[in-house]
């Protein structure tokens, strides 16, 4: 096979994927950018070039509150998923000794990821509700006398559901990084008198950084754009950027939704660019 022939082969093989990304990713995103400058009335969207969508969006104090709220969800979810995800990955990678058990326990963690997110959110209702299991248990033991109201339909419920849904996004890449750490480095640290804690702190943690960065990218971007979790778990009492966009879509205010979408996209890209400075994704596969 000659060189030019094999080149042509590569282009032939990559064309279907490139086409789908062009039609269903690039062009739609460009459409959003274009429409964000359009005008609209109650019935339709009108091609135009106006800046009102942006000036209205950025000039409204509601927008800033919503962004603050979304950052709060993202930050809290990030802290908890990282803490739990790192601990779980560390246990699997360094304390479970046989490969078979590592695989089995890893599968146990990943299987819920392949089931419906919405069902997984709903499944908290009988647990957290006013007459839910947790309140019943707490009242039964006499710890509280009135049911706790903040458990369901609150910020607490939103973050809990996010952590429940997305901790896996941390476990997988961190576990992957940890499995690549040369075991002789751990032995060397131990031979030189490092305690298990010191080894964790000075050997394992730095070498797990790429996994942590990839996991963080996943968790933060998914929470920044989320709207279903916020709507279902806050019971309509809180807002997020994604929810604002979905509400504007519901009201057929597409240009306003598009402007919100562009601002969200820029925000997410800035966060990702910052995190990508910590890791070369292609090297991690």
């Amino acid at each position: 096979m000659s060189a030019s022939n094999s080149k042509r082969g590569s282009y032939f093989l990559i064309t279907p994927m490139a086409l789908v990304f062009a039609i269903f990713l690039v062009i739609p995103l460009l459409t959003i950018v274009v429409v964000s400058f359009w005008d609209y009335d109650e019935y339709r969207i009108l091609p135009d070039f106006i800046l009102e969508n942006y000036s209205y969006l950025l000039g409204s104090s509601v927008t800033w509150q919503i962004y603050l709220n979304t950052f709060k969800y993202a930050a809290l979810t990030w802290v908890f998923t990282l803490g739990i995800g790192f601990t779980v990955a560390y246990f699997l990678a360094f304390h479970v000794r046989s490969l078979t058990w590592q695989i089995i326990l890893f599968m146990v963690c990943t299987i819920p990821f392949w089931t419906s997110n919405i069902i997984r959110m709903i499944s908290w209702i009988p647990f957290l509700g006013r007459n839910g299991l947790l309140n019943q248990a707490l009242m039964g033991t006499g710890i509280i006398h009135e049911p706790l109201e903040f458990l369901l339909f609150s910020d607490f419920a939103v973050v809990l559901a996010d952590v429940h849904l997305y901790t896996l996004f941390m476990v997988v890449p961190i576990f992957n990084s940890m499995m690549r750490i040369d075991r002789s480095l751990i032995e060397a640290a131990r031979d030189n008198g490092a305690s298990a804690w010191a080894t964790l702190r000075h050997v394992i943690l730095p070498l797990s950084k790429p996994g942590i960065a990839i996991g963080s990218i996943f968790v933060i971007t998914v929470v920044m754009g989320d709207f279903i979790t916020v709507r279902l778990m806050s019971g309509g009492q809180s807002a997020s950027v994604g929810l604002q966009i979905s509400n504007e879509i519901g009201l057929l205010q597409y240009p306003a939704a598009a402007a919100s979408a562009v601002v969200l996209l820029i925000t997410v890209l800035l966060i990702v660019t910052a995190l990508l400075r910590l890791v070369d994704i292609r090297k991690e596969l």
Binding site: P28, T31, G225
Partner: peptide, 9 residues
């Protein structure tokens, strides 16, 4: 890219 943007676009 947040899923809702793909949907909207």
């Amino acid at each position: 890219v947040p899923s809702i943007l793909i949907s909207l676009g």
